[in-house]
Every structure is written in C-alpha cells, then in structure tokens.
Amino acid sequence: MNTREKVRVLVAKPGLDGHDRGAKVVARALRDAGFEVIYTGIRQTPEAIAEAAVQEDVDVVGLSILSGAHMALVPKVIRLLREKGMEDVLILVGGIIPDEDIPKLRALGVHGVFGPGTLTQDIVDFIWQALEERQTSATATE
C-alpha cells in the first residue's frame, strides 16, 4: 500500500437524540469511498467532539442531529473547533434541518447541509470537491 495521504473524517452525534442509523449509514458510505472514518457514537458533548477532531487530526467533521437542537449545538462545536486551532476543518451537518436554518448554519461556518433523502454519493462528491478546491486555493496563495 502506498503512502498517499488518507482523508480522515469524524462522524459524530451531538446532543440527546439516540437515532444513529443515518450517521452509521453515512459512516459506512464514507468508508466505502476510501475515507478513514472515526465514528464516536451517540450523545456526544460539543467538547468531546472538538477534542476527538483534534486528536484524530481529521480533515472533515460530520455532525448528525435529528433532535432539532442544531442551532444550539452546531455553533458550540464550531466555536470549540476554532478555539482548538481547527479553523481549516470542513464542517458538514446532516439530519432534520428546516430550510430557513440552512443559511444561518452556513453563515456560522458550516460548509454543507444534508437533509433526509440525500444520496450518500452526493456527500462523498461534496467532500472531494471541497477538499480539492481548498488544495487549489492553498497552492495559489503560497
């Protein structure tokens, strides 16, 4: 096996809802797309998620939230990630997110929002494209 850098993704479920089927399906699909997926399980605190993202040095953090508490949880996770020096991580949110909240989440720094019915391939494509764009802009500024 070569030493090409692997894309590492944290899949986490913040908050109190215990519905993790969606998160597991996404985790599995990302594995099948060749990513190294760190799955942390349900009922994670924002602090635990940010700390895991740091220790695992991930490129992407995926948050699955079905409880409706996304407007409370997502900003906390993002703030903690920034405090810990993870400004450059790609942040995705999946679950049940009302349309009117999507622009608010984006304004907070969420890169992609994926609701029910999303094809897992769309998430994979989104990640590849976002990481490539980032790579290109990084080389351009150097």
């Binding site: 099948d32 797309a33 060749g34 997926v37």
Partner: peptide, 17 residues
C-alpha cells in the same frame, strides 16, 4: 475501498477532556 471505519472511541468516551 482502502477506507476504514474506526469505532473504538465509542467505548472510550470517559477519557475525553
């Protein structure tokens, strides 16, 4: 796929922080 699902952290949550 060359991918991996790393799930050991699920059982190590007490150690966070």
């Amino acid at each position: 796929s060359g991918g991996a699902l790393l799930g050991d952290r699920v059982r190590m949550r007490d150690l966070v922080g």
